[in-house]
Design a protein around this nucleic acid. Structure first.
Lengths: 154, 154
DNA sequence: CTCTCTGCAAATCTTTTGCAGTCCT
DNA sequence: AGGACTGCAAAAGATTTGCAGAGAG
């Protein structure tokens, strides 16, 4: 089964198990979310959903995002600007982010060394870690070039 | 000169350089902040300040926190709950946090290995890092004991 | 039919801003 | 005196909740 099909199944199972109903809106929101790659804010998702079905309101988007997080399809992550972002969680292993403060570009990375060291540190404090978030802000390669070009043009 | 005296000097210099005025409220807020250790929210600080001088409003606390960040005495850091926290920045080298999701306790740590690895990763993406934040959520040692005790009592 | 959903509008919650009066310098 | 500062109240921005009508099972 494709991930896409599995994810839909997980979602609808979660609804059934919680005594919730399968509705058109929830399905549109789910499908639109699954089709995206990125790190969307609730509003981003709302806009994508609205393009597909203009009658869906943001209340429902927020509520459905919560459901998707509950059943492990999505995860919440703040990037330091005012709002929460949502990423795929199912079959999307943990990763961290480089965040460009000029263009808001996000670069994902993963480091075994860092993950291991984190576990060591937690262990040394008798701390039982559940999840973590590492964010590095700075200027991405493209924006560095832009700045240089501007400076040269002076 | 003590750190305390230096920090006051830095703050008042910052005011002078920016054409701002030295006021009683700003001084109380500064001093109260400098006396604390921790990771305070604006409201935490407001409450501490109010105990010392009940006439200070939170507007001024927020505005003064911004000033303290500007001149490098404080740094802003979100812990994933709804609000911003403020830490000492002057002579307080960067560190990361273990965050207990039961009791909200914060444990600071620092790892040279992780810091180095982060720089390597940034470099490998031609990314120029400015700052970063690593947060590990989980259950602290004390809360694990509490849970065990409860379980044993059943 | 019942019980959950939905969208709207209104409420939250933290942080910011406009304003009229107050206080440094 | 004059501009900056302050506290209040109101605004803002993201997210949540109450409600009455709509829809799934």
């Amino acid at each position: 089964m494709s991930d896409f099909a599995k994810e839909k199944e997980i979602f609808f199972n979660h609804l059934k198990e919680s005594g919730l109903k399968k509705t058109g809106q929830r399905e549109v929101i789910l499908v639109v979310f699954l089709k995206t790659e990125g790190h969307l804010s609730a509003e981003d998702l709302y806009n994508l959903v609205k393009a597909e079905d203009p009658t869906v309101g943001f209340t429902t988007v927020y509520r459905t995002l919560k459901l998707m997080c509950e059943c492990g399809l999505a995860r919440e992550e703040g990037m330091g600007d005012g709002f929460k972002r949502y990423e795929h969680h199912y079959n999307h292993p943990h990763h961290d982010h480089l965040i460009c403060t000029e263009c808001s570009d996000l670069i994902e990375f993963y480091s075994e060394t860092i993950e291991k060291k984190q576990d060591e540190i937690a262990l040394s404090h008798n701390f039982k870690p559940t999840h973590h978030s590492l964010r590095i802000w700075g200027i991405c390669s493209a924006c560095q070039k832009k700045t240089k070009t501007k400076a040269a043009a002076k």
